[in-house]
Design a protein around this nucleic acid. Structure first.
Lengths: 211, 211
DNA sequence: CCAGAACCGATACGCTTGTATCGGAATAAG
DNA sequence: CTTATTCCGATACAAGCGTATCGGTTCTGG
């Protein structure tokens, strides 16, 4: 056996470079050469890791998706004792990528989403990420639902529906912040308002009302 | 004076071609040549209309933005007698571009939004479109607010805030539909649910009317 | 130490892109 | 009809792209 290389770590390193470049040129704007330079490897090395450019981009989205959901999960694990309500708040604001430090990640994500509307393989990749996030939100909502009411018997809002709306809202807010239509503060405000109303509906649900 | 040409109409025709191409290749994916072919003019003619590609794309976004807000306005003007509530419903579903027939427009819009996160001039153009839409929604909400309550004295929700959230929600839902994470029906359902709750909050009155 | 396999950097290639250029067609005024 | 001006189609061009190729280097197993 001759020379061996840790491809997995190299791929990740390249994916990071891709993200940096997508961040300020868009996905179509990144070139193999730039990626190689940014990742501090040669063009040949990049080609060895990914047979084609599309394959590389695909890996990059997957990478970002995993990083985001991972961070959300970490955020939840970091403070497990709190109420399900505040946990949900944390998760949502984390997903919204509103903080300045995650602005780049948000741009990357948005760029890929747009590209996905045109490239089916990319869309498939994103769907799994969205499914994971929505599932996570859904579970949190269901949990909050459970713990929010004492002898809960009134019909609670369908967690899946709520998760869908919440996820869509965060995505919309994020993109609006990115193009400068909203400030991060306005977006965060809107998000919190939405969440607060979700609480109100949960714990103040008088028996008989449904959605 | 020699040969004269109606540039305005030619520009519009080219913009339509751009939209068709953006729809299935993304904004970066359109080439001047393809545009010329699609618009059934020569490359030279396109170059005469737009000095540069970016100028052309910019005009195209502006064109789409106008078409959308125009359609929303038309929808409102078409049924002015109804309640402000249902008018808002119409406007929102119209903006969400959920109907199959507007799927292409939605893809174009999303593509441009993503590109705008990277190109400031584009972002500026989009901001004006968003501002127009948000303003419109805001006015409708305020109106519904007014007419919704009899002797209103309870604190009504801030129309601007509500408009922001609503607009973000529609955008998020649209993109989720585009990449196939949601079906059009699920998205429409989420949107209607959101609106219904907005009503409930407006006419804080007990079991009364709904949409 | 040696053979052979795995790797990689450099270079080459064909193609597409946006844009510049230019000669001729078209047209309205005189 | 002439003429001056506007337009446009074809062509040219340099740059940049993704990808293929290949010779040298590096390392592992024996």
């Amino acid at each position: 056996m001759p020379k061996q290389v840790d491809y997995e770590s190299r791929r990740r390193r390249i994916a990071e470079a891709v993200c940096l470049l997508v961040d300020d040129h868009g996905p179509e704007g990144v070139t193999m050469r730039d990626v190689a330079t940014r990742a501090e490897v040669s063009l040949g090395a990049v080609q060895r890791c990914f047979r084609t450019k599309e394959e590389m981009l695909l890996f990059a989205v997957e990478h970002v998706g995993e990083r985001i959901t991972e961070r959300v999960r970490a955020r939840l694990g970091g403070s497990p004792a709190q109420s399900a309500a505040s946990a949900l708040g944390h998760a949502a604001t984390e997903i919204a990528l509103l903080r300045e430090e995650h602005r780049a990640e948000a741009r990357v994500w948005l760029a890929f989403v747009a590209q996905a509307a045109v490239s089916e393989p990319l869309a498939a990749q994103l769907r799994t990420s969205y499914a994971a996030l929505q599932d996570l939100l859904g579970r949190l909502i269901a949990e909050a639902c459970e713990s929010g009411r004492a002898g809960g018997d009134a019909a609670p809002p369908d967690p899946r529906r709520e998760a869908r709306a919440l996820l869509a809202l965060t995505d919309g807010l994020t993109s609006h912040v990115l193009i400068g239509h909203l400030t991060a503060e306005e977006a965060e405000g809107a998000l919190l308002t939405h969440l607060v109303r979700l609480w109100e509906r949960l714990r103040a649900a008088p028996p008989g009302t449904s959605v």
